[in-house]
C-alpha cells in the first residue's frame, strides 16, 4: 500500500529547545500508528508541524501526495524575508487547507467551541463541504435550507457514530469530560478525513470510557480512515496500534511493531531508566498521578 503521510527528517526548534529533531516516519492508508514517548518528547510539536500549525525549521511532510511544508527560494532566506512572506500566506500551507485535503486532528487539551451546542460544534466542522453562499443565506433559498438540513443530518450521523446519546442542543461545557472527548472526535470526523490525528484521546478517561474509545478507534479504522494517535496508556496502545514510533528528546528512537518495541532495549532505557527498577514504579505512579489530575480537572470543568 502507498504511504498516505510521509514525514522526512522533520526538525522544529524553539530558541535553544529542539522540540523535534530529525523525525521520519510514514503512515499507510487505513492503518493505526501510535506515537509514544515521555512527557516533553516533542510528540505534540510534531503533530502541530504535520497539521501545519507550526512551521518546522526543516524537513518535509507530504500528505496524500501534497507538500505541507513548502520550501521558500534561497533568495528570501538570504534576505531574511521568509517569515514575513509566510505571515502573508506565501510558502506555507494553512492548517485549514490541510484539513480540506483530508487530515483531521484533535487537541491534547480539549478545544471545543464553548459557546456552541454539541450539534453546532459538529456542524462547524462541515464548513468546507457545505454549499452555502452569502446570498442564499441572506435570502434563505431552498438550496440553503437543503444544505442546512443535510448538514444537520450528517452531524447527527457522526454524533451517533461516536456513541453520543445525549441532548444535541446542550452546550458542550455542560457535558462530562468523556462525552466532550467523544464530541471532539465526532467533530474531527465531520471534516471527512482520510487521516485522523488523535493527541492523547484517552487522557483523563476512566476504564470503561477507554474500552469504548478502543472500540471507536477500531470503527473509525473500519471506515478506511488511517489513525495516528499519541498516547501514554501503553495498554491501549498495545491493543490498537499496528505500528509504534517512539520519540525521546525530539529524536525518533524506535519504529516498529508493538512486539519489537516492547523488547527494544533503547526504548526500555528511555522509559524505565537504565538499571534501577524503582524508576519503573516511579513512572507508573507519575502516570496515574497525572491522570488523576486530569480527571479532577474535568470534574471541575463540567
Amino acid at each position: 500500500m502507498s504511504a498516505l503521510l510521509e514525514v522526512t527528517d522533520l526538525r522544529l526548534q524553539f530558541g535553544g529547545v529542539k522540540a523535534v529533531d530529525g523525525l521520519s516516519f510514514e503512515v499507510r492508508e487505513g492503518e493505526i500508528l501510535a506515537v509514544i514517548g515521555p512527557n516533553g518528547a516533542g510528540k505534540t510539536s510534531a503533530f502541530n508541524c504535520i497539521s501545519a500549525f507550526y512551521l518546522p525549521t526543516s524537513g518535509s511532510v507530504v500528505f496524500d501526495g501534497k507538500h505541507i511544508v513548502r520550501e521558500a527560494p534561497r533568495i528570501w532566506h538570504r534576505l531574511r524575508l521568509v517569515q514575513l512572506l509566510q505571515s502573508f500566506g506565501f510558502y506555507r500551507v494553512l492548517p485549514s487547507r490541510v484539513t480540506k485535503w483530508g487530515m483531521a486532528r484533535t487537541f491534547q487539551n480539549l478545544r471545543l467551541f464553548r459557546e456552541l451546542s454539541v450539534l453546532d460544534n459538529v456542524k462547524t466542522a462541515m464548513h468546507a463541504n457545505l454549499r452555502e453562499g452569502f446570498w442564499s443565506t441572506l435570502l434563505h433559498t431552498p438550496g440553503y435550507r437543503r444544505a442546512e438540513e443535510a448538514c444537520a443530518r450528517e452531524a447527527r450521523g457522526w454524533l451517533d457514530f461516536v456513541g453520543y446519546e445525549g441532548d444535541e442542543h446542550l452546550y458542550v461545557t455542560h457535558l462530562p469530560y468523556g462525552e466532550q472527548r467523544r464530541v471532539e472526535i465526532a467533530r474531527a470526523l465531520a471534516t471527512s478525513p482520510k487521516l485522523l490525528l488523535l493527541d492523547e484521546p484517552a487522557a483523563g478517561l476512566n476504564y470503561n470510557e477507554k474500552q469504548s474509545l478502543i472500540e471507536l478507534i477500531r470503527k473509525i479504522r473500519a471506515l478506511g480512515v488511517a489513525v495516528v494517535l499519541i498516547e501514554h496508556d501503553m495498554g491501549l496502545v498495545m491493543k490498537l496500534a499496528e505500528r509504534i514510533v517512539v520519540l525521546n528528546y525530539g529524536k525518533e528512537i524506535a519504529d516498529g511493531t508493538p512486539e519489537q518495541i516492547t523488547s527494544d532495549p533503547v526504548v526500555i532505557e528511555a522509559y524505565l531508566g537504565v538499571d534501577d527498577e524503582d524508576h519503573a514504579v516511579d513512572e507508573a505512579r507519575l502516570r496515574t498521578d497525572s491522570d488523576a489530575q486530569l480527571n479532577d480537572e474535568s470534574g471541575s470543568r463540567s
Binding site: S51, F53, T99, K100, R111, F113, D120, T124, H127, T191
Partner: peptide
C-alpha cells in the same frame, strides 16, 4: 458558525477547515 468558532477558539476553527 465559522465566526463563532473563530471567536471561541481560533486554532480549533482552523483545524476544522475554516
Amino acid at each position: 458558525r465559522a465566526w463563532k468558532a473563530v471567536r471561541d477558539d481560533e486554532d480549533a476553527a482552523e483545524a476544522m477547515g475554516i
